[in-house]
Design a binder for these strands. Structure first.
Lengths: 352, 352
DNA sequence: TGGATTTGCTGAAACGGTTCAGTATAATGT
DNA sequence: ACATTATACTGAACCGTTTCAGCAAATCCA
């Protein structure tokens, strides 16, 4: 097994010190005033010897990795990787390509937040991009260690938090207003998990929209989505009420697809009988039957800003206005939303 | 800015040499015969000082990274990340979690294969998992350097290639046989790119199945899929022929969805007028209208084996039978395939 | 009681770079 | 001819760990 060719080998071959090689191979021959002739000799030697620099040696010397970690909620690692996460990964990679840093997916999960944080602060990455709740213990630990960390698709009230998020309250409001503008007055919400900040935000927006339009908020029209299983009972109960909603703001696209399926199962047509609007506006929205109206987060923009912020953090303190950015969502109207049925005001009669 | 706590600091605090600390903190105190009392003292010191080992120092010393690179075809980095790639990423991560190695997504793409290969052999990863054509220059360079590299979802004839693939010939055959068993005799193929080994393999399987059943192979029934754009002309021409096929074996699920859309556009019902079978059996198959019959690759199995093989390669030469494995695909029957229309033998009459 | 073995620990080298603070030589200015 | 400055390069320290070989003291065996 041949020994690895080191920078010293190149130096010997070119008849210079290894320092000089380092400067030349890093393109710093100008500022270090290496003569063109020497530089050329060094480059030739490197090629002859098939020299491949060791990134690890470089990382150690520079105390910088030129890489960032990308981490998601616990479940998303193993379980169903949603189209949303998939798109986020794509956009983060794209931003990292532009900034010439690599992406590391850490797999050494630990139950203990201290240990988990160690995985990130061990020098292999310069910072962490996280989709986690703002109260996540690992996140808090990283912040406490002053390690460059950016939360994205999530906001935080931590004093020195950095995050790039989407305005979920506004998203909830936009979705609800869309239904209201179409004439709906009885609007339900299929919400996400109770612990989810995103879901709570959207609920706030939903209530705000109702309020502005003078529609009473009815807590009975809000049902939690528990994933494709266990979801049906509550939902069916809601939709079989005599005064069932004619419009639904649904937690995610996937949840909305499930709702459509369940509605069809009990003879309700979308959007004829009930209008549905989802969140995320994934590609599947275009292919579903009917194509799903959905609220889209500007994923590419958010990822690009998050990466930019993270990389800025490694150097100096960052201008406060860049540390916390919230972008508005976008409404993609498709065919799952329409006017409420004509007899919707006399809906009660359908029970007989 | 406080200096990083090093292993030497811990050693000083505990009153031992740093070597001893290394042994204890790596759980090798037994074999290095460190007394329990000393071990305990060291562990306490590490906690007191808040010692976080540097992975980079460790990587340098051990010449091992405990990480693998995962790389895809060029386009998949930026462009549409398909549901297939997304599932592959999930499964690779899962396998890596089980094996306790991290995953690195390299972003420093280079046009020059030599340079690109350097990205992988620079010590940050122990090996590379690739979805690339067997003739890919970067792949060949890695193999030439004897760097642990495993091709997956792709086979190669290189003498010392390592790969874990799915039997695409068999997949093409299974898909075609499924249609034949349903009674189809006029079966077309919407194939992938001409350069794609996968697509060629499936075509071979398709022809083999026709041949076995005594159906003549008609090259006019094979049309290349060019992505959602530019695809329609050739396809529509095929489907508007008087002797159009009643069954289609389609390159991918996404392509099949597009075909369904185009068929519907010219008044053809799926599966009433034409049966369609896709490849990949992604989640979207269940939600499409009609749900798409599809050939599934055992992604999780292939990813798990690929990771296993790659990690085995870092140590010693690997048993030849494990170096090249080909797994059979699976047929998922849904509702986009059915019997051919009754009048299919008199199809020509539909032109009048 | 003396030699062999075990126990408990460590010194030094290795891993492969980068960067600071020079130094020796050559060129320039007066 | 001498002081000054620019040019071209380098020595040594540093980054933080692991591992090999070996050493001193304690224990064992006959």
């Amino acid at each position: 097994m041949a020994r690895r060719v080191t920078i010293q080998d190149v130096a010997d071959r070119a008849g210079v010190g290894k320092v000089t090689v380092s400067y030349v191979l890093n393109g710093k021959d100008e500022e270090a005033r290496i003569s063109p002739a020497t530089a050329e000799r060094i480059r030739a030697a490197a090629i002859e010897l098939n020299y491949r620099p060791s990134a690890v040696g470089r990382m150690l010397a520079r105390s910088q990795a030129d890489a960032v970690a990308m981490v998601f909620q616990y479940g998303d690692y193993f379980g169903a990787q949603t189209a949303f996460i998939s798109e986020v990964m794509r956009c983060v990679c794209k931003a990292c390509v532009e900034n010439q840093v690599d992406v590391v997916l850490h797999t050494k999960l630990a139950s203990d937040p201290l240990t988990e944080a160690n995985n990130f602060t061990d020098g292999r990455v310069d910072g962490v991009l996280m989709i986690r709740d703002a109260e996540d213990a690992t996140y808090l630990e990283l912040v406490a260690r002053d390690f460059p960390t950016v939360l994205f698709f999530c906001r935080s009230d931590q004093p020195n938090a950095h995050y790039i998020a989407c305005d979920n309250q506004r998203g909830g409001r936009m979705a609800t207003e869309h239904l209201i503008h179409l004439g709906h007055t009885r609007i339900g919400m299929i919400r996400g998990g109770m612990g989810s900040v995103d879901s709570n935000d959207r609920l706030v927006g939903y209530q705000a929209a109702l309020n502005t339009s003078g529609i009473n908020f009815d807590p009975e029209l809000v049902v939690e989505y528990h994933g494709a299983d266990g979801h049906s009972e509550d939902f069916l109960a809601l939709m079989q009420r005599p005064d069932r909603p004619t419009g639904l703001v649904v937690w995610s696209d996937d949840a909305a697809f499930e709702c459509i399926r369940l509605c069809n199962g009990i003879g309700l047509n979308v959007p004829g009988d009930v209008s549905l609007i989802g969140f995320d506006s994934t590609h599947a929205c275009e292919r579903s039957n009917p194509p799903l109206t959905s609220i889209r987060q500007p994923i590419e923009l958010i990822c690009a800003e998050a990466v930019r912020l993270l990389l800025a953090l490694r150097k100096s303190p960052v201008d406060a206005t860049l540390c916390r950015q919230i972008f508005p969502p976008i409404l993609d109207v498709r065919q799952s939303t329409g006017h409420p049925p004509k007899n919707s005001s006399t809906m009660r009669s359908s029970t007989k």
